[in-house]
């Protein structure tokens, strides 16, 4: 099990950052992703695998009205 923004998400072997974004329907283009506190470079979202039990933060940079 993963924690994504402090809510549970079922872990699957080989899961990448991109898979997490897809599963959560996080479609906003301005995001910062942290895995266990480490900022993940945007260019590695497709390849960066996330370990089981990881604490993932997906911070949307969006300002609204």
């Amino acid at each position: 099990m993963l924690r994504v923004n402090d809510t549970p998400l079922e872990f699957e072997a080989g899961m990448t950052v991109r898979d997490i974004l897809r599963r959560r329907n996080y479609v906003w283009r301005m995001i910062a992703v942290y895995v266990n506190g480490e900022l993940v470079p945007r260019t590695t979202y497709d390849t960066r695998q996330v370990p089981d039990g990881a604490d993932v933060k997906v911070i949307h940079q969006i300002a609204g009205g």
């Binding site: 923004n5 402090d6 996080y26 933060k57 997906v58 969006i62 609204g64």
Partner: peptide, 8 residues
């Protein structure tokens, strides 16, 4: 909204 509901 995003800071609260989405980013938690």
């Amino acid at each position: 909204i995003f800071m609260d509901m989405v980013n938690n």
